[in-house]
């Protein structure tokens, strides 16, 4: 009897296998409509916003097309550049001044009462009234200037088109190139797959440049000697992911880094040694696919985020 049951069970299993084969071959549902190779980062974007130590304040609109760059001076005045226009705003976002420029402003900085505006492939200098003081000649063929930083008499330009940082005098004379691949000096060279390439002057008056293709920050002397670097490629919040991140950064008053990313749109803070500290803004706070979230930090430590999708300067303050 027991033997009979075993045989029946075994035969049923065999028939089940044959049935499965027939079902799979002839009756199984057609493949799902969705693309199996779809680029999906939905899960990576989900972050618990209760862990945030920053809150968003009322943003303001710079009222210009295609915003690309933001900067803050020591008095807290905010400078925004976009297509054909520069806007100067007070701490609360009230417009102080606005003046036209000839072209698409890609980056901006203000030092020594001079406003430096990167206009695609060259630099123009304006006074606070908006009068053009000087127009530097084109940096190099194919240049796309994406960031400017001034340190005393030195002006540093990040050229995404030529994957190079240029050091100029305030008078516009080229002093040296920084970041060219050099195996002897152990300089890896900048990897810039997309037009986002940022730099800033550190507290110790040295130069920090983001190398987005290598997901790292590189630390240089004024002369272009590589001091050190930090950063890691990772899908976790503590790292940078995708082809090329971070896209932009700014330095907080204590020397730590505020970074922005594309793909997984988020703002994060790292210590001055490159250790991940916290999240300022989660991907849910940004429009999907927004790129080039330029950053600035004002003297009060507020983090200003230029959001090209919303055409706003968004303000984040520590709770």
């Amino acid at each position: 009897m027991k033997s009979k049951i075993i045989i029946i069970a075994a035969i049923v299993m065999l028939i089940a296998i044959m049935g499965y084969m027939a079902w799979d071959l002839f009756l199984s549902a057609p493949p799902e409509a969705k693309n199996p190779w779809e680029y999906k980062v939905g899960d990576l974007k989900r972050v618990d916003s209760s862990i945030l130590n920053y809150i968003e304040m009322k943003p303001f609109k710079p009222e210009m097309e295609e915003v690309h760059g933001v900067d803050v001076d020591s008095s807290g005045t905010i400078y925004v550049v976009g297509k054909n226009r520069v806007g100067i705003f007070g701490r609360d976002g009230n417009l102080k001044n606005s003046f036209p420029i000839s072209g698409i402003g890609t980056c901006i900085t203000m030092r020594n009462q001079l406003i430096y505006v990167g206009i695609l492939d060259h630099i123009e200098l304006f006074n606070m009234s908006g009068d053009r003081i000087k127009r530097w000649k084109r940096t190099a063929p194919g240049s796309v200037i994406t960031s400017i930083a001034v340190n005393g008499n030195d002006v540093f330009l990040a050229d995404a088109g030529n994957k190079m940082v240029y050091r100029y005098t305030a008078a516009g004379k080229l002093l040296n190139r920084i970041g060219q691949k050099d195996t002897v000096q152990n300089i890896p060279g900048f990897v810039i797959p997309s037009p986002y390439f940022d730099l800033a002057i550190g507290k110790d008056r040295t130069l920090w440049v983001v190398n987005p293709g290598r997901h790292s920050f590189e630390h240089y002397t004024m002369e272009g000697h590589l001091l050190n670097s930090w950063g890691s490629a990772s899908n976790s919040t503590a790292g940078f992911c995708g082809c090329c991140n971070p896209t932009n950064f700014a330095l907080l008053n204590d020397g730590s880094f505020v970074t922005s990313e594309k793909g997984i749109e988020r703002i994060k803070i790292y210590s001055n040694e490159g250790v991940y500290r916290e999240l300022v803004a989660t991907p849910e706070m940004f429009a999907e696919g927004v790129k080039g979230l330029d950053l600035a930090v004002d003297p009060q430590g507020r983090i200003l985020v230029l959001d090209p999708a919303k055409n706003q300067v968004r303000v984040f303050v520590r709770k």
Binding site: T106, L120, A160, K163, V191, P193, G213
Partner: peptide, 13 residues
Amino acid sequence: IQRFPRPEFETGY
């Protein structure tokens, strides 16, 4: 007239 941002650059990679 050149557009900004440009399409993906060559990375040198």
